[in-house]
Amino acid sequence: MTNETRERVTELLTSLISFETENPPGNEREAAEFIYDWFREEGIEPSLIDEPNAARPQVAVRVGEGDPTVVLNGHIDVVPAGDGDQWSYPPYEPTIEDDVLYGRGSADMKAGVAVAMLATVDIAAAVEAGELEGTVVFHAAMGEETAEPGTKTLLESGYTGDYGIVLEPTSLRTATSEKGLAWYEITVAGDPSHASRPDHGTNAIANVRPVLDALEAYDTDVRTREDDLLGCSYATVTEFEAGTKENVVPESATITVDRRFLPSETAGDVDSEIDELLATVEADHGIDTSWRRTRTYESAEIPVDSTLAEVVRNHSAAVADVPTDPWGIQASTDVRNLVNDAEMEAITWGPGELDQAHTYDEHIELPEVVAGYEVLWRVLEDLFEP
């Protein structure tokens, strides 16, 4: 079975990687249409979902009948490949060397999508033969890399269930919690003037200094907030932009803050903290500021001893000798939609190393992808046992 699985996984995964699905701008259409056609060729009727963006359709599949229903979720968008000269192999020409498959999206997360597609087809055959009882829902979602409501829309369209697995790369470890992410743009005002007469204006860059000091103190404070599985919170300044021309005193400057937060916090809580921080700076230094939250991934968690988590941990250990201790993922994924919006018992789990996400020469080890399929099959077989 392993050799056959390897051939099936390799063929499907290389096909998926060959589609350039970069987001931005959002080029998922061709890959979505391929997935749609692939399921039809396998005798399964999928749905092509035009919401929330008709130019970037999603694919949803439901097979089987009865309880429980397990959702297998994956996204088909990838981050841009960047400078092609930095790649050892062309990013959209998947290449295999010594059991390692190279290509953009190999780890994040087309391997997970391929494993889920194959498992969906095989479960359908087992259910039809009367060997298993249960329902699988498959998602090929758009827009995950930019926090767009792809998965959320699929859930709202009825493609939900009792359990959920988001097949992001975790090296087959089972994550029952994840950090949230909020990006903030803070604008600091000044008053423009010609640089030959700088005292006729107010340099926004100078006004930024107390804001940066306050953000540094804020980061120190939030790092004291800790979670047993996820570590601490962060507030990191990641971008700074100011000025329009060399000889113009800038009238504004913009700071970007990446705020990673724990399940005990919410984006609303962070909003209040940013608001209070800037109000204090304005009062103490007499400067004008404004802010907006530009992107949000809420945090999510389920009990570490949930039924699904225990089943996946046990089979991952049996197949791939993966640790069974409780674990959380520090990255943000669409599992938040399954847990928070659809109130599902859901985990993040899948083949591939998270460190490979968004890198040059992104790659995945094919034996781990095969192991991922075998674990997923055993999990579904366990949950669907008549």
Rank of each mutant, 00 (worst) to 15 (best):
A242F: 13
E362A: 11
V137N: 01
L181P: 03
E93T: 11
E45T: 02
E362H: 14
T224S: 13
A140P: 00
D83H: 14
V121G: 04
A55C: 03
A342N: 05
V304C: 05
D199W: 14
A242W: 08
A116F: 05
P367I: 04
T21V: 06
P25R: 05
P80F: 14
D213V: 06
I302E: 08
K152W: 11
E381R: 11
V369Q: 07
T160Q: 11
R336T: 13
G103S: 08
S306A: 14
S306Y: 11
M344H: 10
E368A: 15
R29T: 07
R173V: 05
V137P: 01
I165K: 03
D228N: 13
G66R: 03
D305R: 04
V59E: 00
P25Q: 09
G328Q: 04
V281G: 00
P94Y: 15
D321E: 13
P386A: 09
D191Y: 12
I49V: 04
V319R: 09
R223E: 14
T2V: 11
G286S: 00
S177H: 13
W183D: 06
L167Y: 11
R292T: 14
D227H: 15
D191M: 03
G164H: 12
F39A: 00
A346C: 07
E362L: 03
E33G: 01
L278A: 10
D361T: 09
G231R: 06
V100M: 08
D305V: 06
T224P: 10
R313M: 05
D325R: 08
V63E: 03
K152A: 10
E156P: 15
L354S: 15
G105A: 05
A114M: 01
N23I: 02
T151C: 10
A214G: 12
R62D: 00
E226H: 15
V208M: 01
R209Q: 13
A116D: 03
V78N: 07
P198I: 04
I329C: 06
V63F: 09
D85R: 11
D227I: 05
Q330G: 14
E22S: 13
D228A: 10
P169F: 07
E131T: 15
S264A: 14
T202C: 04
P326Q: 02
R197M: 10
Q356D: 12
H139T: 00
A217H: 09
S264F: 14
L338I: 02
V304I: 10
V136H: 07
A141G: 07
E241N: 14
L16E: 04
D67M: 04
T69R: 07
E22I: 06
I35A: 01
S106C: 12
V63Q: 02
S252M: 02
I123Y: 15
L132H: 13
A125H: 14
E133V: 08
G74V: 00
Y163Q: 04
L101G: 12
F39S: 00
L277V: 04
V222D: 11
L167E: 02
P57Y: 00
T333S: 05
N27G: 12
I165S: 02
N314K: 08
S299R: 03
